[in-house]
Design a protein around this nucleic acid. Structure first.
Lengths: 148, 148
DNA sequence: GTCATATTGTTTAATATTAAACTATATGAT
DNA sequence: ATCATATAGTTTAATATTAAACAATATGAC
């Protein structure tokens, strides 16, 4: 093999493993969301509101990497279930502030705890040092322009 | 912070970075598929056929981690574009063998080369050793039961 | 003030995805 | 041979997602 070939081979291999790991972990962790009848996106929205407080839809879209059109629907569905509330802001009436309701807060609190536990369990196959290393390497890949 | 807290914190942090890296890289690499009017799933199917030869739909579904129902549609669309061909097997008439057409082979050959180059470019932010390390750590996370 | 431009959120149309019900075929026990 | 079970693929209904067009509101130049 020429050096280029081994370089390519290594890159493809690493890429594949990264993707598989992400899919695999997402799928297992996601079961805890599905158990509470939350999609990954719905969980993402509620989790953002839990940890950042009330947000407008645009900020939510940016946070969970989805289109604003999609967020409209996700919030619609959460609103129907009484988990969040929309509130028009008077200083700038284009904005809507999305807030957790009491029920929403209670639910995401509980589901987040389970998800958190699942993530900790997933990561337990790695030592602390390995986790730090993985985080550092992933961060290098994540940084860069472009959606995502 | 109690030890449990730092453990949890580290796990969540690592998880987030893993997810961001995967999304980010997928999104950038995926542009090369979109440029040829291929969805990620369509690319996945063609790529599997390119590197593994003819496959039945069930195997394709397993390979790209999608439902068999979805594969039916993906293959339908590829067939409409004349990129693959379905062929009933006579030894067991439940099976369909999916083959690349000449046109399909030509296309995936070209698109795969671009995707490959994109992946190599993505991975260039990591040294060879770092790639090996990332691969090893991801593999530990990926292994386990469960869809994915 | 008025108009051009930006921005927030909504709607629409197209596509993707899944789970579950279904059809057709094969296999194995009796 | 027959029947129960399993398997491959399809269909259907529900949901998710995006891009693009759109409505409402804000901002800034003049």
């Amino acid at each position: 093999m020429k050096p280029t070939d081994t370089t390519t081979y290594r890159a493809l291999n690493t890429y594949t493993k990264l993707m598989r790991a992400a899919e695999s972990v997402t799928s297992r962790v996601g079961r805890n969301m599905a158990a509470a009848d939350l999609t990954i996106s719905q969980f993402g929205v509620l989790e953002a509101l839990l940890h950042k407080g009330p947000l407008c839809q645009r900020d939510i879209a940016a946070k969970i990497l989805k289109s604003t059109g999609n967020i409209t629907l996700v919030i619609d569905n959460l609103e129907k279930r009484g988990l969040v509330r929309r509130e028009r802001i008077n200083e700038d009436r284009r904005y809507l502030t999305i807030q957790l309701t009491d029920h929403g807060l209670e639910l995401i609190h509980e589901v987040f705890a389970r998800v958190e536990a699942a993530i900790v369990a997933e990561m337990k196959v790695l030592t602390h040092d390995e986790q730090e290393t993985l985080g550092t390497l992933c961060k290098k890949l994540g940084l860069r322009e472009g959606r995502g």
